[in-house]
Design a protein around this nucleic acid. Structure first.
Length: 251
DNA sequence: AACGCGATCAACCGCAGAGCG
DNA sequence: GCGCTCTGCGGTTGATCGCGT
């Protein structure tokens, strides 16, 4: 048996929102705040399901949204974050003020994917398409990055499934400090992130020493001193892209 | 002007996980 | 610990727009 529907579908509108619906939703949220999406439509006098209201607010009506074209910097950041996080659009959006996950997802699928493909880069693995069969796993160390920040102890254990935690730390570095202003101390956590090309037989993970960079363009695994560029001098066509955690740290 | 086609983006759907009793 | 509800996320769909023929 399936779960019960989130709302009474027979009595809800679907499709594009009207100006009046937008106004009602905006006015209600301004008066009562976000939250309790299930009961919101009824309270606001809307014939919509709660999910639909939430989506409309988050993706379109929120006052802090930055609409319009993506800048080159935003492009670059999205590509970098996607190479680290994959399709974690909400985490990526967390690093792009005023942008929504839906917007970034659409932008990725319509613009960036094609852009990377035209450069001969696989948008899924972020590696040259020709390199696919020679690919090897890459682990990116965030230990140095964590130490570079104030939250020196935010290091995750490698042997637990921490990809999401690491991703969250990247997307919302301040949010890793749970507990009313007390910095989170997790001395046994390791921020190592492992990125591996899909559809490959399992190979031993190549562990990078912290403080050593990895070039995603030429896949140099020989160890590149931190702070210096790889000889190939490009990352997805963008210079300065030694994948150093600091380079994706924002503001 | 009419049509076809690809691009774009708002909105929907189903699932997973968190929270709560 | 279990079951239920609610929220949030990612994938997908479909309406609309713009351009070329």
């Amino acid at each position: 048996m399936g779960r019960s529907p989130c709302c009474e579908k027979a009595h809800t509108n679907k499709g594009a929102w009207t100006k009046e619906e937008d106004d009602r939703l905006t006015a209600y949220i301004k008066a009562h705040g976000e939250g309790c999406w299930r009961s919101l439509p009824k309270a606001a006098g809307l014939l919509r399901c709660g999910k639909s209201c939430r989506l409309r607010w988050i993706n379109y009506l929120r006052p802090d949204l930055k609409r319009g074209n993506f800048s080159e910097e935003e492009d670059e950041l999205i590509i970098k974050l996607h190479s680290l996080l994959g399709n974690k659009w909400s985490l990526i959006a967390g690093r792009l003020p005023g942008r929504t996950d839906n917007e970034i997802k659409n932008y990725w699928n319509t613009h960036i994917r094609r852009k990377l493909m035209s450069r001969g880069i696989d948008p899924v693995t972020h590696r040259g398409i020709n390199e696919q069969q020679h690919g090897s796993n890459i682990t990116i160390s965030f230990e140095a990055a964590a130490a570079a920040r104030d939250d020196k102890a935010a290091v995750f254990r490698r042997d637990e499934p921490t990809t999401t935690k690491a991703a969250a730390a990247i997307a919302h570095p301040r949010q890793m400090e749970w507990g009313q202003g007390k910095p989170l101390k997790c001395p046994d956590l390791n921020l190592d992130l492992c990125i591996s090309p899909p559809f490959q037989e399992e190979k031993p993970v190549v562990k990078r020493e912290s403080g050593v960079g990895v070039c995603f363009s030429c896949s140099s695994l020989g160890g590149i001193p931190k702070g210096s560029d790889c000889k190939c001098s490009s990352f997805l066509g963008i210079r300065t892209a030694m994948l150093d955690f600091r380079s994706i740290e924002m503001k």
